[in-house]
Each structure stands twice: as C-alpha cells, then as structure tokens.
Design a protein around this nucleic acid. Structure first.
Ligand SMILES: NC(=O)c1ccc[n+]([C@@H]2O[C@H](COP(=O)([O-])OP(=O)(O)OC[C@H]3O[C@@H](n4cnc5c(N)ncnc54)[C@H](O)[C@@H]3O)[C@@H](O)[C@H]2O)c1
Ligand SMILES: NC(=O)c1ccc[n+]([C@@H]2O[C@H](COP(=O)([O-])OP(=O)(O)OC[C@H]3O[C@@H](n4cnc5c(N)ncnc54)[C@H](O)[C@@H]3O)[C@@H](O)[C@H]2O)c1
Lengths: 256, 256
DNA sequence: AGGCGCTTGTGAACACGTGCACAAATCGCG
DNA sequence: CGCGATTTGTGCACGTGTTCACAAGCGCCT
C-alpha cells in the first residue's frame, strides 16, 4: 500500500470532506463496531486487535479488517486499533458528529416506548418532536416533550432541522405521513408500520417489521423440526414419525 | 421444466414433508409477499401477476418469480398466481400453519408496547407468556396475560410449547436471559437489547436494534449532504463551501 | 383448430459479499 | 541493531444474490 490519504478525518486542515463510498454491508456493520468500541473504551481498553473487536461485535475478524480498511488505514500492525481514534473515525463516517434530530410521528403504543427510551442520546440522536393526529394525544408530555399535532409538521421542521422521520402510526396512515415528511424536506425515514412506502428518489426508507422477524425465525424453527424428523434424505416416511433424534449441524446467528 | 413434485404441499397423502432449503434472502422476503397477498385477498383479488405482487411488495418482479419458483411451480403462465393457494404455500413453508407461541421476557417500556400489540395474532403468533425479573411488575395484567417471574420460565415452558423467545430487557441482562431461554429448549430468539448474544449451535438469533437503523440512515444522510456540497470530484475546496446544488442520482429504499 | 397475447420459470451474466491465507509492517527485546 | 512475535491490510477464490432476457406454457378469441 502506498502513501495513504485518510479520506475524511474529522478536524483536518485542507482535507477533502468527501466520503469513501462504502459497501452497504459494511455500513450496516459499522454501528455494531461502534457499540463494541464504546464498551471497550468504558472497560479501559486503549487499543484492540481486529480479533478482539470482531469477537466483541460478533463477526469474523477478516471481515472486520476489510470493513475498516474501507475507511482508511487506522490500525497499527503488530498492535491493533486505537480505540478512541477508531470511534472518532466511525462516528465521522456515520455522520454522528452532529447530534441528529429525529421527529417521531404516531405516539401510540409503540411510539410511547420510543419516546420514553433514553438510549438514543448515547448513540447520536435526539428526539426533537413528537407528533400525532389524535387531538386527545396532543398536549401530552413525554420525557419533557409535548406531543404536537401532525399538521404542525411544517412549523416544527422549520424550527428544528429534522434529519430523520420515524413513522409509528397504523399502516393505513403511514403513506400519508411519509408524504408529509417528504414534503417538509425529510430524506430519511424509519418505518415501523407493516406496509411498503413509496417515496421519491433520494429519500431513504428503512423498515422494521417485528412480525417479519418472527416469521423468519418461524421458518428456521420449522426447518429444524423437519430435519430432526427426517434423519436421512429420500426416506420413505409415511407421515411425520419421530424416529431419529440426530441433530445435523445447523447455523447460528443468521444475518440481519 | 420436467414433472414437478411440489415439495411440501399442506394436506397431501404420502408426500415428503421435507422443506426445500431456500436462500436466506428469499426467506427474508417471503413474509413481505405474504403480507401483500393478504392485502390483495382482502381487496377481492383471486389471482395476481408477478408484476402486480412485486409492486405490492416493493420488489423487482424477476426476483419475486425466482423466489416463488423455489417453493415449486404454483403459477399459471398467461394468468398469474392464485392468491389463496400462494398464501397457503408460503404460510406452510414459513411454518405458520400452527400458531406459534412466543414468550416475552422483559416487560418494561418496550415490552409493554409489544405485549399490548394485537397485530401479531394475524401474522401467525400468540404471545403466550410475559416474564420479568422485577417483583413489582410480576402480577401486572396486560391484554389478559399476567406477568410472571422470570424464574418461572421452566414451568411456563413446560405448560406452553414455546417456539420463540423475545428479549426486551436491558443489555446487561440479555445474555443471562438468553441462557435461560436456551436452557428450557427455546431455539429461536428475537433480541431487542443492543448487545451480541452467544448461543449454542442450532439456536437462531435475530436482533432488532433501532439505534443501528438510525445510524445507517444517518450515514446516507451524511453522504447525501457531502455530495451536494461537492459537485465535482477532486475539487480544491478549502472547507465546506455550499457551491453547486447539483443533485446526483441517488438510490431509493435501500435494502433491509 | 390455430394463432396471438400474456405471464411464468429459468439460464446465464453480472454484481456483491465473504473468508482464507499471506506478505508487509510494526513493536519489543535481547 | 537485528530478529522473532504479532497483527494489519489485501489479493484471490468462492459463494450468494440480482437482473436481464427469452423460450415455454396457458387461455382466449376467432
Ligand atoms: N406496538 C407494537 O409493539 C408494534 C409491533 C409491531 C408493529 N407495530 C406497528 O407500529 C405501528 C404503531 O403501532 P401502535 O401499537 O403504536 O399503534 P397505536 O394505534 O397504539 O398508535 C398509533 C398512533 O398513531 C396515531 N396516528 C394515526 N394516524 C395518524 C396520522 N395520520 N398522523 C399522525 N399520527 C397518526 C394514532 O393517533 C395513534 O396514537 C403500527 O403500524 C403497528 O402495526 C407495533
Ligand atoms: N424502549 C425503546 O423504545 C427501545 C428502543 C431501542 C432499544 N431498546 C432496548 O430494549 C430493551 C428494553 O428497553 P426498555 O425501554 O423496555 O427498558 P426498561 O428498563 O423499561 O425495561 C426492561 C425490563 O426488563 C426487566 N428485566 C431486567 N432484568 C431482567 C431479567 N434478568 N429477566 C427478566 N426481566 C428483566 C426489568 O424489570 C424491566 O421491566 C433495552 O435493551 C433497550 O436498550 C428499547
């Protein structure tokens, strides 16, 4: 490797602020590394090897090294990675140097839990507004924030600079809310409603659907059960007879 | 294609109950198709083309066809897929023909929202037990279920046949809870605590970490911002000067 | 019966992600 | 100063996933 220029180090003189364009799979793992690194820092570690960090993050060490190499060359051969420096680098790349403002739309069952959660602050986010369409909910105070009516969104967006919108409304309302968010300039949406959103180009949507997660687990559960019932392939089983109890090797911790 | 034998049709005489082993990416999408199909069924559709279903599920139609082809050949050329039949097939493959029992451990902020959510029933799951370590919470009734002490887990598991364990405790307690779940025979875990769990082979873990989702969105937000600030590559910008406002093409709805 | 338009199922090329294995680099120590 | 122990960064081979493009199949209409 020749004279490396670190692509986007935080406080640098005339540095190019362009980001390396990381593989999507790498981006999805950086937050895991970051969490592990914060744990390590609290435990008093100053440096960490790729093996150690990979263990803490639950990934293969080669994969971790390749991921980190995309950010530049921040390790020291024979030693490992400087924990503090690496935290800074990852936070910079993820855009967490500024605390990003989040607007939460839909303060029902789930929305309450999110609004009351104090774990986001330590991960780079600040819930800046709570919005709901139900007049009965407007005015309610949660964690020091007052629920506002969703029609106030334009005003709220003008006051706070909203980076991310979170949708926790019923599915029927989600598309409408997404449109409203896009209309006020939000270009990143996290959607908890079980439906697909259509948004213009340039707007990113990620969804979290708990039922889907359970169904994926259910599939593997089903497969594991059918495997134990059928020890050998091509068997002439009439129906499900609980014969062999041999457990073939199965996999652990399947991908996110 | 030659004489197809459908690998695991529901009520079939001496059929082999083995599941086709699907690509993991396909498994992750089947639940989306299922949800879209249920919507279509409610809207009165009897058949649907791959194009139509792909739109409803938010994916490419070629990908959808390839996914479905892994289950067997359930479409009719020139016509499309029978909605009801396809629902049955997917539910069978996902193991949703039996309503699976879920044990929820940790009935705090988030656990309450999950316990009070009535959307799981329609997706194949039944919350069968609520468990917590806090004596003050034990005895509380949510949605007709009484919170029990986590040490009761062995008894609960013996009574109900728990298919999936959900962990909604603080991260510090999550590994211990996972061990307890594994000890009573649970082989599928959904983890909301921001930490990695180590489990024996044969146990599947999926995690949901909302902060990670936000951080991924933050990365794209950061990148979008740096792109608009830098219209051409290799520019000799001193610092971040808001010069060109050209928006390069960007992507929509990045993968889950 | 035959032809025509529509849709599935899939081969093949391509893109992306993973993991091994090792050279290059660094540190500590004699 | 040189050497061995250690750990990074990466070339390469492999596996997985995506997408195009089209032949084969189906139903309908004439
Ligand atoms: N609660 C859970 O554990 C859970 C689990 C999985 C998925 N979800 C999904 O998350 C979403 C929220 O679930 P919930 O249990 O909180 O539902 P909820 O009915 O308790 O809350 C929905 C809230 O959204 C508000 N709302 C409705 N339309 C709105 C609009 N147009 N603009 C703004 N606010 C609006 C309602 O007033 C209500 O306060 C649903 O889509 C649900 O399917 C929830
Ligand atoms: N609330 C949210 O919106 C949110 C968002 C993201 C992540 N999370 C994560 O979800 C988890 C739960 O969050 P929360 O806000 O509900 O926390 P919480 O503190 O409100 O609830 C945790 C519950 O777990 C119980 N508990 C503790 N140790 C236990 C044990 N050993 N066995 C059984 N129960 C035990 C506690 O008694 C409490 O009732 C945390 O790991 C949190 O980081 C929550």
């Amino acid at each position: 490797m020749s004279q490396h220029r670190h692509p986007g180090a935080p406080g640098r003189a005339g540095a190019v602020p362009a980001l390396p364009d990381l593989p999507e799979a790498t981006v999805a793992r950086l937050p895991e590394y970051l969490r592990a690194l914060h744990n390590l820092a609290e435990t008093g570690n100053e440096t960490i090897s790729s093996e150690g960090l990979a263990n803490a993050a639950g990934v293969n060490s080669a994969k971790l090294r390749k991921d980190l190499s995309h950010l530049g060359s921040y390790g020291t051969r024979g030693v490992g990675y400087d924990v503090t420096l690496l935290i800074e680098q990852i936070e910079y790349v993820l855009g967490l140097t500024q605390r990003r403002a989040v607007a939460l739309v839909g303060v029902g069952n789930l929305g309450h839990a999110l609004a009351g959660y104090d774990g986001f602050a330590g991960r780079g986010f600040r819930i800046a507004a709570l919005l709901d369409a139900d007049p009965a909910r407007v005015g309610e105070e949660i964690n020091g924030l007052v629920v506002q009516h969703v029609e106030e969104l334009p005003r709220v967006a003008a006051e706070e600079s909203i980076a991310i919108g979170v949708i926790a409304t019923p599915a029927a309302a989600a598309q409408r809310v997404a449109d409203q968010l896009v209309a006020v300039g939000v270009t990143s949406i996290l959607n908890f409603a079980p439906c697909v959103l259509s948004v213009p180009d340039g707007v990113d949507v990620r969804k979290v659907d708990l039922a889907i997660e359970l169904q994926i687990l259910s599939f593997h559960e089903h497969r594991k059960a059918s495997l134990t019932a059928l020890p050998a392939a091509g068997g002439s089983a009439l129906t499900a007879l609980p014969g062999g109890l041999a457990v073939t090797e199965s996999q652990e911790a399947i991908g996110t």
